[in-house]
Design a protein around this nucleic acid. Sequence first.
DNA 1: TTATTGGTCGTACGTACGTCCGAATTCTAT
DNA 2: ATAGAATTCGGACGTACGTACGACCAATAA
Lengths: 193, 193
Amino acid sequence: MQQKTDKIKPSEKILTTAFECLSTRGYANVSMRNIAKEAGVALSQLTYYYKNKEKLFIEVINMMTVQYLHEIEKNLESVMGEKEKLASLVRFFKELIRNKPKLLKLFIDFIAQALWIPSFREQLNSLFTELTQIIEENLLTDPKTKKKYLEYSPKTVAKLILGALLGTSIQIVLGSDRDSAFESLNLAESLLN
Amino acid sequence: MQQKTDKIKPSEKILTTAFECLSTRGYANVSMRNIAKEAGVALSQLTYYYKNKEKLFIEVINMMTVQYLHEIEKNLESVMGEKEKLASLVRFFKELIRNKPKLLKLFIDFIAQALWIPSFREQLNSLFTELTQIIEENLLTDPKTKKKYLEYSPKTVAKLILGALLGTSIQIVLGSDRDSAFESLNLAESLLN
DNA sequence: TTATTGGTCGTACGTACGTCCGAATTCTAT
DNA sequence: ATAGAATTCGGACGTACGTACGACCAATAA
């Protein structure tokens, strides 16, 4: 029965357990020992595979970044027209908030850590850059769309879209009345159309 | 010469020093001992006045909340017309980012802590509520303004504005190219007009 | 068979943390 | 002047942390 779970590579088991712990309790409140214990592995295994706590967290974020950036791009490719793509992006975020709030929390926690830890900051910056580019290339290339924002560059528009999605998500994840804030995302969509 | 600084109440000295430390290095990276030392006060004084680290941070946030909420309201009262008030709010945020980035960092850090610490979360929620109300009452009462957003409630609009300001600020504080992201705030303003 | 390598483990080191406590000092009101 | 309260101090307690180390074990290659 447990054959398969036993065959999981320890390094992967550590990684997924680390994600579970970090996204549930936060970087500052999770110790290497916690992760080791929960993964059913010796503490020193974490050092062996990931060197230290900082690098382990970076790997966790990396894993999530790769996975979800792909998912976003797949989502955007699956519909035609920039209006529809925007709708699709908003829908993606709403589903993320509803179904994977832990992922959002992990991400917000990571942002805060990036304030003080240079290696995190670097990684976060490249994530922001990639996200902005995806938005730019998918939602803002049509001349018709461009005209609407006249003097503003696509990059500026993309950053605002990302900012609004991020800021609203934060309010939702942390706030009490979830549904009222969801409405804000709908409004964002219609304002941009 | 130092008469005046010596006369500062220790509790206040602790509070301002705590702000300085927290906004420079972050909640997780600042110890009670750090603050005590920097404030020139015995460690146990922090416990005496603020009970524990959590409550001390809450007091710091409280101080900042009171001060800057007042400042925002004062700012909004000083101009007439909802368009102008929106412009004034955006200007306020831009100046905040430019002149008091440490305050922004403190705030972002606080948001992340609020993910895991219930007392922080409570305080953050009431701060969000107050901010939303200020926006609602100052920028969204004019019937002319209301019409623009048709089916959306003022609260929803207010939350989006707050979200966009917050999300964009985060990108600016953490990002490398500050000026390009400032543009996003200008765009936000014109989109809402 | 033996030697080498990669993986696994338990443990220990040094340090830092938040909190607590009892004694000393200063202030205040009678 | 003095009792009592408020303040200040240094130090200690127990715990938790990230990291490092050296000993095993299993598989592989010569």
